[in-house]
Simulated assay, not measured.
Amino acid sequence: MQIFGRVSQEQIVFGLAVLLCVGFALTLPGFLTASNLLNLVRSVSILGILGVAMGLVVIGRGIDLSLVAVMAISVAWTLQLVTSGMPLPQAVCLGLLFCLAVGTINGFLIAYVEIPAIFATLAMGTAVYGFGRYFLFSLDVLYMPEAAQRLTWLGQGTLFDIPVPIFLFAAVCIVAYLFLRYTKSGRYLRAVGDNLLAARITGVPARPIIVLQYILSAMIGFIAGLVTAASVASMNTRVANSTYVYDVILVVVLGGIGLSGGRGGIRNVIVGTLLIGVLLNGMTIMDIQYTVQNVIKGVILLTAIVIDTILNPRDEQTAQQGDI
């Protein structure tokens, strides 16, 4: 998205991240240490993985407000199954199948029933949370049992002295980039997001592609959930009712992926994650209250959406679609 001549929103956000780094390095003791920078990237790796999931959906001109709820409930159920005596591989497979089923239902409701994505996924997130708490487990927080301790390496381990979550974030970004750039389904997803009617006319299987993007979102969300649980040896399902999903949207929109669909890529998610990571780390070092941090993030998200609306105005076809 171009803003001033040849300068894109992605470049501006990256420049802001660099300026914040310089400012914090000059004013906050300990910010520019290697350990703090590694902790900075590690702390936002999960947010970045979820940003990739949301980015794929938004590029396809959708939105997934159920992402965090599906992540929390599926991983919590996985931990509950292991606690109940099920072997870890089977429990992980069942948790993943749960995610894929929810993603498929989301995609079906949006592509075939033609419910606007924002309403379908909002309702699905609420339903998944209620279903999980009533039928699958009764506790708010599920702790990692001894039989699942192998998973802790995903969140607490290191590889070449670099935290494993950073490698996982990089791996998810690379796979998603290759999917969008080199696969037919990835090109179809971008085409559907850019212009749904034109994509249909040219023979793109639009409805299956819409279903696919929500399946991918749920699958990547499950990966993020495993890393989350591994990092703190538990899964707090109350995160499903938090503002975390809006942090994910903030990363996507701030990085430069247009809400009107068909624009942006994985690089935008990385840049948005970098800026939010630097900002959150700086505010934490300055001991800014959590509620004040939420106000700051809310203002940034609103500003990013206003900029996105100006740069990517809703055309007639987008308005008729009524998706987001």
Rank of each mutant, 00 (worst) to 15 (best):
M1R: 14
M1T: 11
F4T: 10
V7F: 09
Q11G: 07
F14M: 12
V22C: 13
G23M: 13
A25W: 02
T27G: 12
L28E: 08
L28T: 05
F31V: 04
L37T: 02
N39K: 01
L40A: 11
R42Y: 02
V44I: 15
G48Q: 05
I49D: 03
L50E: 00
L50P: 11
G51W: 03
V57N: 12
V57S: 14
R61F: 12
I63E: 01
S66A: 14
S74Y: 01
V75D: 04
W77V: 00
T83S: 15
S84F: 06
L88Q: 07
Q90F: 12
Q90E: 11
C93K: 00
F98D: 00
C99K: 09
L100W: 10
I105K: 05
G107Q: 00
F108T: 12
L109N: 08
L109C: 15
L122G: 07
L122A: 13
A123T: 06
A123Q: 01
G125K: 08
G125N: 08
T126G: 02
L136S: 00
F137R: 03
S138I: 11
Q149N: 13
L151E: 05
W153L: 14
Q156D: 05
T158N: 08
D161T: 10
A176Y: 01
A176I: 00
T183P: 07
K184I: 08
G186M: 02
L189N: 05
L189G: 04
G193P: 09
G193S: 10
D194N: 14
L196E: 15
L197C: 02
A198Q: 06
A199K: 07
R200L: 12
R200H: 06
I201Y: 14
L212R: 03
I215K: 02
S217K: 04
S217D: 00
A218D: 04
I223N: 06
I223A: 13
A230K: 02
A240I: 01
T243W: 06
Y244G: 01
Y244N: 02
V248L: 03
G256A: 07
I257M: 06
S260C: 09
R263M: 05
V269G: 01
V269Y: 00
G272I: 02
L275V: 02
I276P: 04
L279D: 02
N281R: 05
Y290C: 06
Q293L: 07
V295F: 11
I296H: 10
L301K: 09
L302C: 13
T303E: 06
V306T: 14
I307M: 14
I307D: 07
I307F: 13
L311E: 02
D315H: 13
Q320G: 11
G322Y: 01
G322C: 08
I324R: 14
